[in-house]
Every structure is written in structure tokens, then in C-alpha cells.
């Protein structure tokens, strides 16, 4: 009886997942994912199906099977559902976590642990003879294949770890003048930028000094920066795809939104060559703009970037909250 139930659940699982993956998945991955027609809803439906048939048919599969299903579902999610593909280092991390979670699930009490071990013990001992033969042949083959794969020479570029947000130096010298980055303010930030959110630069530029600076900054931006950083400041400029690291996306909350203006000033002025070693200055394509722009032009560009994206530069002042900033980079 139990064997029949187990067999049923195995068949339902394999067939069901096949149907889901090959037939239903394409339906849920249209060009424009919507609120309902997207991959994650698809995944939830599949999980619901798996849980559903087990409950409805009262199958009560054994622990070993449950554990492998759980593990497999996690693997499927990280491999096929999460889009775009996460880098393999992250996938290994996530799968390690999922495996640990599965292990905790298995070992939550001695009863379930014993139940989980039962089929493994039976296979090794020989009660499931066919399974034992298959496993004992398959295992060395798998190990051999894994060894072969690891020894096979590959021709990928080596990975390079970069610190995306290095610690800025205490001072920097631009155009012969030494600036202390701590407490350095943008001299053109003469007012709250939100007040000028909907100002139309061309009409208002004569009246309002702030908008004039933004306009000038925007002009500089479109003359110099948008080729890489994009005309929508999203890091998708026409040249962006050839660079590694790619040009910063200012719209992303992890770039200028998290940084101080003095940090930006240093970065724009010094560019790639001004980076410390841990940020791989040799691979950055960012020019040192102090060679092409005046100091005030650099400040105005920074002003423009914040205004356009709507982000505010970070402050470390006393009036800010009592918490510290634990930026996990």
C-alpha cells in the first residue's frame, strides 16, 4: 500500500513538473511580465500543485522523498525561475543555504531523521537490491565526471573582485587645490532640490539660480557623460556594454543615493585611475574628469545628477538618526 502511494506521488511529481516546466512555464513568461503572468506566480502555482496533490490524495510520502522534493524545488527555483541567472558564486551560496535548510528539516527530531535515513540504509544494506546496484554504479561515474569537469581546462576570464564603494581618501587635490572630503559641500547646492522638482529649466532658468546651475550641469552631462552613463542616467549609455565594470547606474538606490557629494566629487575628478587598488583602477573606463572639466563644472554635474534622479546625497550629520550605517557591500 505504502509503495503504491509512494509510486503515485513520484509519478505525479515527475509528470506534473514536466507539464509545468514545458507547457505552463512559457505561458507565464511573456515578453512583458504582468502582475499575474510572471515567473514567480508560476513558481507558486507549481508549489501549490505539489502540496495540493499530496494533501488531496492523502499520500503522506516518506521523509526521504519529501526532503528530496524540497531540495529539488529549491534548485529549480534558483536555476530556472529566478531571472536573469544569478552568478554561480551566489547560486552556490544560495544552494548551500537551501541544503542546510533541508538538513535542518530532516533532522528536526530523531524520528524524522531516522525515517529519512531508512531508505538510504536499506539501499546500502541491500534490501533494495536494484537501487543498490544502480547507486553503486552511478556514484563512481558521477564522481569521475565531476573530476573530469574540474580538470578540464576552461578559457573563461578570471573573476576579479572589486570593492564597488572604496573608502575615500581624507583629502584630494583637484586643480592644485587640496580639498578635505569630510564635510565638503557642493557650493552650488544653494537650496533644497525638491523645491525645484517641477521647474522647467528653460523657462525658469533666468529667475532661479538653482535651476540655472542644474541646466549648466545638465549641459555638461550631455556633452560628456551620457555616452556611458546613459541619457536616462541608468548606466545604459551607447558605449556602456563594452565596459567591465559597467558604468554606474545613477537611478539604482545603491549608487549616488548612498553616497556623499564629496565622494562623488572625488570620483568624478579622479576617475578610474584615482581608485585605490581594491577597486581595480586598471579596469575602470571612467576618465579623470579634472583633466577636462573645471572644478565648478564638476560640482554642477553632480548637482544635476541628483536633481534628475531625485535622490538626495547622503549626510552623516548629527541631526540624522541615531542608528549607524552598516553598509553591507
Amino acid at each position: 500500500m505504502n509503495n503504491n502511494k509512494t509510486l503515485t506521488s513520484v509519478i505525479l511529481l515527475l509528470v506534473g513538473c514536466g507539464v509545468f516546466h514545458y507547457l505552463i512555464f512559457p505561458i507565464f513568461t511573456p515578453k512583458e511580465p504582468g502582475w499575474f503572468l510572471n515567473r514567480y506566480v508560476y513558481f507558486l502555482l507549481m508549489v501549490a500543485y505539489i502540496i495540493g496533490y499530496n494533501i488531496i490524495l492523502n499520500l503522506k510520502p516518506p521523509m526521504f522523498f519529501k526532503a528530496t522534493t524540497v531540495w529539488g524545488v529549491g534548485y529549480y527555483f534558483y536555476d530556472a525561475v529566478l531571472h536573469p541567472h544569478i552568478p554561480w558564486t551566489l547560486r552556490i551560496t544560495y544552494m548551500m543555504l537551501w541544503s542546510i535548510g533541508t538538513f535542518l528539516y530532516i533532522t528536526q527530531d530523531p524520528v524524522t531523521f531516522k525515517e529519512f535515513r531508512k531508505p538510504i540504509v536499506k539501499t546500502i544494506v541491500g534490501d533494495y537490491r536494484m537501487a543498490r546496484i544502480v547507486v553503486f554504479i552511478a556514484l563512481p561515474v558521477l564522481v569521475g565526471f565531476a573530476t573530469y569537469q574540474s580538470l578540464l581546462p576552461k578559457f573563461e576570464e578570471p573573476v576579479e573582485l572589486r570593492t564597488v564603494h572604496p573608502a575615500p581618501p581624507a583629502t584630494t587635490k583637484v586643480h592644485g587645490k587640496s580639498y578635505t572630503l569630510e564635510g565638503l559641500q557642493n557650493p552650488f547646492r544653494i537650496d533644497e532640490q525638491d523645491k525645484y522638482k517641477d521647474s522647467f529649466p528653460f523657462l525658469d532658468a533666468d529667475k532661479q539660480e538653482y535651476v540655472k546651475y542644474i541646466t549648466e550641469g545638465g549641459t555638461i552631462f550631455f556633452q560628456n557623460c551620457h555616452y556611458c552613463h546613459g541619457d536616462q542616467l541608468n548606466g545604459l549609455g551607447m558605449f556602456s556594454h563594452v565596459f567591465n565594470p559597467t558604468p554606474a547606474n545613477f537611478v539604482d538606490p545603491g549608487t549616488i543615493a548612498m553616497l556623499r557629494e564629496s565622494f562623488l566629487f572625488w570620483r568624478v575628478a579622479k576617475g578610474g585611475p584615482g581608485l585605490p587598488n581594491e577597486s581595480t583602477p586598471w579596469s575602470s573606463a571612467m576618465p579623470p574628469w579634472e583633466e577636462h572639466l573645471k572644478t565648478e563644472e564638476i560640482w554642477k554635474v553632480i548637482l544635476f545628477e541628483y536633481w534628475y534622479t531625485g535622490w538626495h546625497p547622503r549626510t552623516f550629520d548629527e541631526e540624522s538618526s541615531s542608528g549607524s550605517e552598516k553598509k553591507k557591500e
Binding site: L82, H83, P84, H85, I86, P87, W88, T89, L90, E156, E157, V159, L161, R162, T163, V164, H165, G235, H241, N244, P245, T246, N249, D252, P253, G254, M258, E325, K326, K327, K328, E329
Partner: peptide
């Protein structure tokens, strides 16, 4: 999930940037 993910350039291209659109939001405090 780290903010700076170690990846090969091929993966970087596939992701379309240094940040993954879904997982990248987990990199911050």
C-alpha cells in the same frame, strides 16, 4: 546576499549590470 557579487564577465553581461534586478535589492542595509 552581498552588494558586490563575484562573477565572471559572461554572467555580468547576462545580468545586464553589476546588480541583479531581483537579488540586488538584498545587498543593502
Amino acid at each position: 546576499t552581498p552588494h558586490t557579487i563575484v562573477m565572471t564577465p559572461a554572467e555580468l553581461k547576462e545580468m545586464g549590470g553589476a546588480q541583479h534586478p531581483v537579488v540586488g535589492v538584498f545587498g543593502v542595509m
